[in-house]
Amino acid sequence: MRIAMIGIGALGGIYLDRLARGLPDADVVVVADGERADRLERDGITINGERRVFPVLRPGDATSSADLLIIATKAAGLDPAIALAAPHVGRGTIVLSLINGIHSEPILARAFPRAHVVPSMTAGSDVMRRGNEIRFANFGRIAFGDTAQSDAVRRLGEVFAGADVPHEIPRNMTHVLWWKFMGNVGINPASALLDATYGEFQGGDSPAGAVMVAAQRELIAIANAKGVALGEDDLAEWLRVVGTLDPAGETSMLQDMRAARPTEIDIFAGVVVEMGRELGIPTPVNETLFHGIRARERILGSR
Rank of each mutant, 00 (worst) to 15 (best):
V165Y: 10
T63D: 11
P170D: 02
F268C: 10
L69Q: 08
R58P: 10
G203Y: 09
A225Q: 04
S104N: 11
R154I: 14
V159G: 04
G101S: 04
T73Q: 02
S206I: 03
H103Q: 12
Q216C: 09
G22H: 02
G60C: 03
M5T: 13
G131M: 01
S206R: 04
D234A: 07
E297D: 08
G157H: 05
N184R: 00
P87Y: 12
G183F: 12
D246E: 08
L57K: 14
V242M: 05
T46Y: 01
G162Y: 02
G22P: 09
V271W: 09
N172F: 04
G183K: 04
W178M: 00
R258I: 01
G249F: 14
V165Q: 06
V117Y: 04
R129K: 14
L254E: 04
I169W: 04
E200G: 06
L156H: 07
G9V: 05
V153L: 08
L98E: 10
G90C: 09
P170N: 06
V29Q: 06
V95Y: 07
I94P: 00
I142W: 11
V31K: 04
A192D: 06
I134C: 02
T244L: 05
A192H: 14
P262Y: 07
A229E: 13
R91S: 14
R277Q: 07
A75F: 06
A229W: 01
A137Y: 04
E237Y: 15
I187E: 07
I169G: 07
E41L: 11
E278F: 00
R258C: 02
A192S: 15
T46A: 10
D266K: 03
L194H: 01
V56E: 05
R135A: 12
T63C: 15
L108T: 11
E264N: 12
F160I: 00
F112R: 08
R294Q: 11
V242T: 10
M182Q: 13
A76W: 12
I45F: 00
S65Y: 12
L19Q: 10
P207I: 05
A163S: 08
V29S: 03
R298N: 03
W178N: 03
R36G: 02
V30K: 01
R21W: 01
I102W: 03
A85W: 14
A223D: 09
A62G: 12
T73A: 06
L108D: 05
E50R: 14
G301S: 06
H175F: 08
S65L: 08
A85S: 03
A85R: 13
A10V: 11
F136A: 03
L19P: 13
G140P: 07
M173Y: 09
L78Y: 13
R294K: 14
M182N: 10
